[in-house]
């Protein structure tokens, strides 16, 4: 996909609303559509950072069984909906990467997975990933809730483990393309900010004051070069 083109069309699409005043805009009020771009081939890493990522990618921390267990567990934590779920969002791969990127996570994750299988084997005679869902939940129910008044590192290992898995599952999902869509976040693209919509103001019981708004940018004139009088009053 030619990302450059698609961003351009996004801007034209989204700015058109914000600049509905186009017809009466003064000369020079055009926005810089053509210069906004992002190239999907890169993600802003220095050569040293790329090297580190390649090195981490070449290593394998979790074995196949552990990754399968992570997959099963993450889908219990956040069951898929019509937008998808942890598997489609790449959560197991993300957790594998993070365990190498932040090695402090390793013992809690690996130890927790072993605890899970031990518990499942003890109670049901099968490892966790092969246990039927209702029984998996019986294992999870006692470890899934934590006491918010007690520091996490003072809580039982299996509670710490589950909390970490829940955090990584949710962050992995909500930082994926489908997760961001599911959440409904609308930003990270060129637009013209012109205040909170009225229905949102009403919902939260706040309002703009005329006096304050009068100081704010008139977006129809944002493309006009600023000029001031000698007292700092904006003329354009």
């Amino acid at each position: 996909m030619d990302r450059r083109k698609s961003i351009k069309s996004i801007i034209l699409g989204s700015v058109a609303g914000g600049l509905a005043v186009h017809g009466c805009k003064p000369e020079g009020a055009a926005i810089e559509e053509e210069t906004v771009s992002t190239d999907e081939k890169y993600f802003g890493r220095t050569p040293e950072e790329l090297e580190l990522i390649e090195k981490l990618n070449a290593e394998q921390f979790f074995n196949e069984h552990e990754l399968e267990t992570i997959d099963v567990l993450s889908n219990l934590i956040l069951p898929p909906n019509e937008n998808g779920g942890p598997t489609e969002a790449g959560v197991p791969e993300f957790i594998e990467f993070m365990a190498k990127d932040i090695p402090e996570l390793q013992t809690t994750l690996r130890g927790g997975l072993m605890w899970l299988d031990h518990k499942s084997n003890t109670d049901f005679g099968t490892e966790f990933k092969l246990t039927e869902e209702a029984k998996q939940k019986q294992i999870l129910d006692p470890i899934a809730f934590y006491d918010a008044e007690v520091p996490m590192d003072e809580q039982a290992l299996e509670i710490q483990f589950f909390s970490l898995m829940r955090n990584l599952t949710l962050t992995g999902y909500y930082t994926s393309k489908m997760g961001i869509e599911d959440l409904g976040y609308k930003g990270n693209m060129p637009n013209v900010w012109d205040g909170v919509p009225q229905d949102v103001l009403d919902q939260h019981g706040v309002a703009y004051e005329e006096e304050w708004l009068a100081k704010c940018v008139d977006q129809s004139k944002r493309g006009v070069i600023a000029e001031w009088d000698e007292n700092g009053n904006l003329l354009t």
Binding site: S14, L183, G184, Y185, K186, G187, N188, M189, N191, W193, V196, P197, D199, V200, Q203, H204
Partner: peptide, 9 residues
């Protein structure tokens, strides 16, 4: 919150 708009600012 309603997430109907871009609030990046």
């Amino acid at each position: 919150r309603k997430l109907s708009y871009n609030e990046d600012g």
